[in-house]
């Protein structure tokens, strides 16, 4: 009962937030001195009538408030409109979303599978050689800019020829059998995954280590040890459950980054994801496309936080109590 009520309350809170976000982004894009028709205007073979037609089609002749209202109306109806090139926004997004999801979910899965255990080991074996080496490595991982690392790996791919230079599939992908398709896809994914993995792993591993250290230092762990529980039980049964709670909140944020996440890396690797699409849309002031992706980003962020909060309620009795008390 408590949970459903809590969720409906949270969802209702989302509505004014979405309106606010859309208002701000819409006006900022429209008020910037970018003319979506600049390229057409500079084309010697485009006539004045053509320009007028385009202005009508993009609603540029109407006041900005009316533009916003007509955009909002169709957005609520689920119609994302057309890009400035006349393609459906929903189609464009549909082409790209699966690719970005594929990339980011692999990265998140890998980082959590590797980062959490590494964090635990580093905390348990604090101040040993292993911990020190991990610290150095994660510092490097955090310090190296993602685009730079991506370019280094691209150079590596060019020189060795072991990996393809960017993209997601080879040109003869559709003529391959299932096994070769899998190999081809993996080959293309190795480098971008490596970049994103290296960068988010360091942060996650460090966070986990810090949480774990804090918990290991607390009184009840000392008590559990004093009670004579095995070290394994102390760490995994008592300490871990408490140390992992803040990580769940973190997962909520990562969920938001799932779609918009890795624009820079996507760009360098020419990965056909959402990030590249949005970047190009902003440069052209393609309002429908930018707005659609911004709204999706906002919804994902809110959804991610919601999921994280619910998960927290399930794992942590303390949050459950405060919610119920409210």
């Amino acid at each position: 009962m408590g949970i459903t009520k809590y969720i409906t309350k949270r969802i209702l809170q989302v509505i004014p937030l979405l309106i606010l976000v859309s208002l701000i982004s819409f006006f900022i894009i429209r008020l910037s001195p970018i003319d979506p028709l600049a390229e057409l205007r500079l084309n010697p073979s485009i006539s004045e009538e053509t320009l007028q037609k385009e202005i009508k089609r993009l609603n540029l002749d109407k006041p900005i408030a009316i533009q916003y209202i007509s955009w909002a109306k169709s957005f609520v109806k689920g119609d994302l409109g057309y890009t400035s090139d006349g393609e459906k926004v929903s189609v464009k997004l549909k082409e790209r979303i699966p690719n970005t999801l594929l990339l980011t979910s692999i990265v998140i899965f890998l980082t959590w599978m590797v980062g959490i255990p590494l964090g635990i080991i580093a905390a348990v074996k604090k101040e040993t050689a292993f911990d020190r080496i991990l610290t150095v490595l994660s510092s490097i991982g955090m310090a190296i800019p993602s685009f730079f690392f991506a370019i280094l790996l691209l150079m590596f791919a060019v020189k060795t020829g072991w990996f393809p230079v960017g993209g997601l599939t080879s040109y003869n992908f559709n003529d391959m059998n299932l096994f070769h398709k899998f190999i081809d896809l993996s080959k293309h994914l190795v480098l971008p995954v490596a970049v994103l993995f290296a960068i988010s792993l360091s942060g996650l591993q460090r966070q986990m280590r810090a949480n774990m250290l804090e918990v290991l230092d607390s009184d009840y762990v000392k008590f559990a040890r004093a009670k004579g529980l095995s070290e394994f039980k102390v760490v995994f049964k008592h300490a871990l459950r408490n140390a992992v709670n803040p990580m769940i909140t973190l997962l909520g944020f990562e969920f938001a980054g799932l779609l918009s996440g890795a624009a820079l890396t996507e760009y360098v690797f020419q990965y056909p994801g959402l990030g590249r699409l949005i970047l190009e849309a902003v440069m052209k002031s393609d309002i429908n496309l930018v707005m659609a992706s911004l709204m999706i980003g906002t919804i994902m962020l809110i959804l991610g936080n919601l999921i994280a909060d619910i998960l927290l309620m399930l794992t942590d009795p303390r949050t459950r109590k405060t919610q119920e008390a409210k």
């Binding site: 393609e87 464009k92 993209g167 040109y171 020419q270 056909p272």
Partner: peptide, 27 residues
């Protein structure tokens, strides 16, 4: 538009469309 089924396109040029993969390639 680019998501048209390539097989349905009727044309007369030296080449016909085989496949379009968004942001990756046109064959």
């Amino acid at each position: 538009n680019p998501d048209t089924n390539p097989k349905s396109i009727v044309s007369n040029g030296p080449f016909k469309l085989k496949e379009y993969v968004a942001a990756q390639r046109v064959v």
